[in-house]
Amino acid sequence: MSRDGVAVRLEGVELCYRLAKQRIPSLKEYAIHWMKGSLAYEKLWALRDVSFTVEVGDSLGIVGRNGAGKSTLLKVISRVLQPTRGNAKIYGSVAPILELGAGFDAELTGEENIYLNALLLGHTRREVDARREEIVAFSGLGDFIRTPIRNYSSGMVARLGFSVAMAWIPDILVLDEVLTVGDEQFVRQCERRMEEFLAQGATIVLVTHDVDAVRKVCRRALWLDEGRIRAEGPADDIVDRYLEFSGSA
């Protein structure tokens, strides 16, 4: 599905959150303001003129301060948000883990959640049947898989979420600051799996404040600041520059 070996291509992407000046949460108020022509919005640009390309099989780490637009950028890459302006071309299937436990039902057991979550990611029941045991084994949750996940710790939820999302090799794997919850052993297990993905030609985009993980997993990195790209290049260089800047600030 990729074009000329490109997995992600963003051209002049801008993304604006329209915050209503006075909050208009009801239809009645909206209608009144609309008739009076007094709908005013404060525009908050989360992304400004963002252009970059990720090649197939590459791994990109995104670093930056809180509120720099990292998560918003991942949502654009995951096809959750449409850019206000500019062009975002995402080629192939995307497996996003933007938030731990997104799409989990606390009342369902781990096993039932495997199905629910995989279906939400666009897999079929048959595909899940074929991988179920593999997913349970990867998660290392053992007998807990048959208990409702409201009894799980956040680490266990993370294990389950990763095990589902990483059971199939996607064209693009998108991770948002979620690797940090698992224990040492599980994180290593995930890193190994990601290396396998990369070896098989998958693309990885990763946001994390754990700069060591960026150095380890990513070949390239992108430094985002106030919605703009501050720097882009080999992961080690970018992380060094980012750390230097953060240290001095």
Binding site: R79, V80, A102, G103, L120, L121, G122
Partner: peptide, 9 residues
């Protein structure tokens, strides 16, 4: 709604 802001469903 919170789900569709985190997954491309």
């Amino acid at each position: 709604a919170s789900l569709v802001s985190k997954l491309p469903v």
